[in-house]
C-alpha cells in the first residue's frame, strides 16, 4: 500500500463513553482506509482507558472508559492518529482469499426470487452477479463478526425485509442496500437471504473467532443443494498460498 494521506474527518460526540469519527472525502476507498488505519493505530497506541475502535465503511466508533480518560483526551488521540496516518506509509498485510461455496434459493435462500423480482432480472442473473464479483471485507459487523462487503452489481439497492426474521441461520448469505454479508451465527435479521454456505464461519474456541479480517477477499461459488451436506462441519479457511504461486512455474515441476 502506498503512502496514505488521511481523509478529512468530522468527530461527533456519541454519549459519555464513545466518539464517532467520520471520514468525509469524496473517495469512499480513502475514507475506508482512513477509518481502518485510525482504528489500527488507536488499538496499538496502548493509551489507558481506550477500549477499542469499531471501524466500518466511512466511520469509526471509538469507545473509552470515561473514568480513566476524558472525551477531550480521546479527541486528541484521534487527531494524533490521523496525523500519524498521513505521515507514515501504511504497510497492510497482503489480503488473504476465501472461497465460499453457496447453495442458492429454495430453503437455503428464501428471498432469492423476491430479490430477482425486485431487480427485474432472472434468478440465474442474480446468482451470476453475486458469484461474478470479488468482495473485499470492509468491516466486521453485527452479528458475531459478520463480513460486511460492498454488494454485487445489481441494478438497484435491495430493500430490507419489512418484517425482519426472528432467526436467520448461521451461514446465511444475504444482501441489503448495496451491501452483502454472511451470517456467522444464527440471529434475527432483516436482510434478504439468497443462499447459505455449509461451511462454519465462527469458532469461539479460537482467536480470532472469524477467519477473515477487513481487507481480505471473498468469492462466492455456487454448489448444488445435494452437495451441501458434504461440506457441513468444515470451516471457512483462507485459500492456501501455493509455493509456486510466488515464482514463475518451471515446466515439468508438477507430477
Amino acid at each position: 500500500m502506498s503512502v496514505l494521506a488521511a481523509a478529512p474527518t468530522e468527530i461527533y460526540e456519541s454519549g459519555d463513553s464513545a466518539l464517532r469519527v467520520v471520514a468525509i472525502s469524496e473517495a469512499s476507498e480513502l475514507n475506508w482506509l482512513t477509518v481502518h488505519g485510525l482504528a489500527d493505530w488507536l488499538e496499538s497506541c496502548g493509551a489507558e482507558g481506550l477500549h477499542g475502535a469499531v471501524p466500518t465503511y466511512d466511520s469509526v466508533l471509538v469507545e473509552f472508559d470515561p473514568i480513566l480518560v476524558s472525551a477531550r483526551q480521546v479527541r486528541a488521540f484521534v487527531k494524533l492518529g490521523l496525523l500519524e496516518l498521513g505521515r507514515s506509509a501504511a504497510s497492510a498485510a497482503a489480503p488473504r482469499e476465501f472461497d465460499v461455496p453457496v447453495v442458492y434459493g429454495g430453503e437455503y435462500g428464501p428471498d432469492l426470487e423476491r430479490v430477482a423480482d425486485h431487480q427485474g432480472i432472472s434468478v440465474e442473473e442474480v446468482i451470476r452477479l453475486h458469484t461474478g464479483k470479488t468482495y473485499t471485507v470492509r468491516c466486521l459487523g453485527a452479528p458475531a463478526g459478520s463480513p460486511m462487503m460492498d454488494g454485487p452489481a445489481f441494478p438497484k439497492p435491495v430493500p430490507r425485509l419489512k418484517d425482519p426474521r426472528l432467526s436467520v441461520p448461521a451461514g446465511a448469505v444475504a444482501v441489503a442496500g448495496r451491501q452483502a454479508v454472511i451470517a456467522p451465527a444464527s440471529a434475527p435479521g432483516g436482510w434478504c437471504v439468497i443462499g447459505q454456505t455449509p461451511l462454519s464461519v465462527l469458532n469461539i474456541r479460537r482467536e480470532p473467532l472469524v477467519p477473515y479480517k477487513p481487507g481480505d477477499i471473498l468469492r462466492f461459488r455456487q454448489i448444488r443443494a445435494e452437495d451441501f451436506s458434504g461440506f457441513v462441519g468444515m470451516e471457512l479457511e483462507p485459500r492456501a498460498v501455493e509455493p509456486h504461486a510466488l515464482e514463475p512455474l518451471t515446466s515439468g515441476a508438477q507430477p
Binding site: 456519541s14 454519549g15 463513553s17 464513545a18 464517532r20 475502535a53 469499531v54 471501524p55 466500518t56 465503511y57 466511512d58 466511520s59 469509526v60 466508533l61 469507545e63 468491516c139 459487523g141 453485527a142 452479528p143 460486511m148 439497492p157 442496500g177 448495496r178 451491501q179 440471529a187
Partner: peptide, 30 residues
C-alpha cells in the same frame, strides 16, 4: 440508506413506527 456504523451502548433509535429502541450492552455493534 445509512451505511452500517458502529453504534454506542445507550443509542436511542427509532427503527419502526411503533417503538423507540434503546440499545443496551448486548447490542449488535453495527
Amino acid at each position: 440508506e445509512v451505511l452500517s456504523r458502529g453504534v454506542p451502548v445507550g443509542a436511542v433509535e427509532v427503527p419502526s413506527r411503533e417503538e423507540l429502541l434503546v440499545l443496551h450492552r448486548g447490542r449488535g455493534v453495527t
